[in-house]
Each structure stands twice: as structure tokens, then as C-alpha cells.
Write a protein that binds this DNA or RNA. Sequence first.
DNA 1: ATTACTAATATCCGAGTAG
DNA 2: TCTACTCGGATATTAGTAA
Lengths: 231, 231
Amino acid sequence: MKPALWNTLYSLAELGASQRPVKISTTQLARVIHSSQQTASRQLIQLEKTGLVERHFNVNGGWIRITENGMDELRRVYLNLKTVMEGATPTLKLEGTVFQGLQEGAYYVGQKGYRRQFTEKLGFDPYPGTLNIRLRSKADFQTRKELEAYPAILIEGFGNEHRSFGPLRCYRVTINGQVQGALMTIQRTHYDSSVVELIAPVKLREKLNLKDGDKVVVEAFISGEMPPHRT
Amino acid sequence: MKPALWNTLYSLAELGASQRPVKISTTQLARVIHSSQQTASRQLIQLEKTGLVERHFNVNGGWIRITENGMDELRRVYLNLKTVMEGATPTLKLEGTVFQGLQEGAYYVGQKGYRRQFTEKLGFDPYPGTLNIRLRSKADFQTRKELEAYPAILIEGFGNEHRSFGPLRCYRVTINGQVQGALMTIQRTHYDSSVVELIAPVKLREKLNLKDGDKVVVEAFISGEMPPHRT
DNA sequence: ATTACTAATATCCGAGTAG
DNA sequence: TCTACTCGGATATTAGTAA
């Protein structure tokens, strides 16, 4: 079904033609769908031909009613939008304070083996460095546990001649509602579970004007499925 | 906003781009929206230009996310469809049995002063005759009272040199779920309030194969507003 | 692999108008 | 008035292709 045709059907529904026949001329309908009388006429013909609306005429013009099939077309879109709007991916909010880490983030993030995967799986090449966040409240510890129960974006470990690098689990996040990035849980971290590390395509300390001790709000998006990527 | 563009935005939402960036190539998107890669590309450019989606690129292709403005566009349609689907015009169901009237229906309905108005306000030229229905249950009496509390389609009274004809109140109905017609309450009827009369563009007794004593279900549509008609 | 440009083509739209 | 036809011009789409 052509989008323009669907749009006309939708407009008719707005005019009340879903419940009862509506008396409307092609000229009036044309105004509603922002087209000419001729186009309105043609669209009605097509909608009728495909059984999505019924019409009958008298001398003054036509009466139009959306059929059950027509309502099905609208309902299909409605239900999908409902899923999008209401069944929205749940988000988890974490709050924490910025602190100076051991400055080793840059070393890790800068590794080619990680960077290639970040770019491929997260969609950005991270600024070489991590922002360390310490969670303060019990509630935030709890939320972090909950977050980790959800499927993560997995960054595989790898090794070079000198040493090996462990796997990472990432979650997409929005930081302070402004910057899109990712939250990482490094397995072999020096920090306990009250710490999370953030990466982003930009230097977060600069972009968000952060100093040690500043509060940061991290909103994590949980996806039931992995983002599509080439296999 | 062009319907085709809205459709692309909607498809992106279906793909999950409302919550997080989605990795999808123009070729993949083209398959979803049933178009060519070139059209998908062009539509994305337009959506980005109008601030409805955000994109960023890496060597393998682009990542796409619907912006707040984009979500607003989808939400507008969603809420309208919700009204259409759920806030649907309330319907009242009446059940009654067919009985032979005084055969005067044809005389009344056939009057030019009525017919002209039926055609104009109901959208059909009624078969010259009415189907008389007697309500049986208390619940149906109740429902009839309720129905009469709603605004009706008013057929004005008129007179000729010989006599005068009273005003009618009509409601749009579907009879036995099959025929669209109208329920009339004639003010100066011989019958008490347990009787309603139905008109339709066809002879109901024939079309629905009805005999005296048969049960008939009448579903009345209540419209807060009158159907649009020329003033 | 991608995205997106240009040019050729297909489709759609609306002015004019008949019935 | 109304609907809906024809037809030429406008718009959108795709093929071919560069980067």
C-alpha cells in the first residue's frame, strides 16, 4: 500500500469515517490531505477499488465509510506505533560522581583490538580515555546489578605478543541527557562494583564540563536484541 | 510532511531506531520501505535535514537514530489513531422482534418533504416503508432511553395544503450487522415507547429475510457531531 | 562494502473540462 | 454544484556510477 494512499485513509478516519458514513466532497477532502480535488478523487477511487472504503452517491456528492479491511490497515500501524511508544525499551538511570581514575583508560581504549570492535558494534570510535563514575547510593548499586542482568554488547577479548586483554560488556547510554556513549564493565578492573566506566566519541570531561566530584546521570538503554550488524 | 517520508520514519521506528542508534545500510532500508537504495538514501538525507533523525557514519555504513522531533511526528499520528481505535464512537445495541405495523410507514417515508431530507442528511433514499421492531426486555427500554438522550439527526416537520407532518429524530444504525440504515422515533406515533421503526435504502424484510416475530439486533452509532453537510 | 551524485525514466499531480 | 476523465508539466524514482 502506497504511503500517500494510507495517508488519505488515515485522514478519513480522522474525519470520523471509521464509524459511520461521512458526507464529504472530493474538494473538501482535498483540503484535508493538501492536494487537489482531482487527486482526492483518484485516491478515493483507488481506496474503493482495493476495498478499503465504501462509497455511495447522491446528487449532492458522496458518502464515505472505511470498511473493516480499511480499519485493519489503520490498526496494523496503530499497534506497531503502540509498541514503539509504550513498549519502549526500558531505561535504567544511574547516578554517580566523577573521580580521577588510574589514567589507564586511555591505554585500554586505545588498543586496536578494542577500537575496531567499538567502531563496529557501538558505531563510534571512542575518545581514548574513560570517565570513571562512582556510584554512591544503595539504589544505584541495585540498578547496576539489574542492568548487568540484561544482555550486553559484547566486546571480545584478544591478545598480542606481550599480553592479553579481557572481554568487555557494554551498554548504550546517554550521559547527562546530552552525549551518547557506552557504559563498560571491565572484568579485570581494579575497582569494586561501585564503579562504572564511560566512553564516548568525545572527551566527556570537556564536553560536559566535568570536574572530580561532579554528579553525572547515566541513562542506559536495554536492548533485547543486538543492534543489527554484518555477520 | 510528505506521506512517503513519514512512512520511512515509521519504518525506522519499527526497526528500533526510536530508542537507540540502529546500524542499517541504505540498501537494507530500501528493502524495508520497498524502494531502491537511492531513494532510501535520499529520504534519509531529507529526514536528517529536517531534524527528524540523526546519523553518524563509519566505514561500514551509517547508524541512525530518531530524534525527539521525529518521535513527536510519530506520536501525533499514534494519538490520533488511538482516538479512532479506542475512543471510538460508542454504540448502543438494541434487540427486538419484527412485527407487522399499520402499513402507514410507506405513506410517511414516501413524502417528498421527508425523502429529500433523508437523502441529504442520511445519505440514502429510503425504501418506502418502515420495519417495526418491538423491544422486549427492560434492558432494551433502558437503552432506548439512553439513545434518545444523545443528539439525533433531525428531520424537520413540514406541511402541505392538506395536513402537516411532524419532525423526526433519526440515529444511524446497522441492522443485524449487515445493513446500514436509520432508526426513527416518530413523535406522533401510535405505538408506545417499546417500538422503534427502521428505514434503510433496501427492503429490510427481503434483504434480511425477516418474518414477523424474528429477532433483530440494531446497533446505533452515536455521533457527538452531525455528519458534515452543506449549509 | 558503503553513500549519494547525475541523468534518464517513470510516476504522479493538477488544470481544464465533460457529464 | 458534484465526480472523474485526459493530458502536459512537475515530481519522484531508479540506473549508472564515482568516491
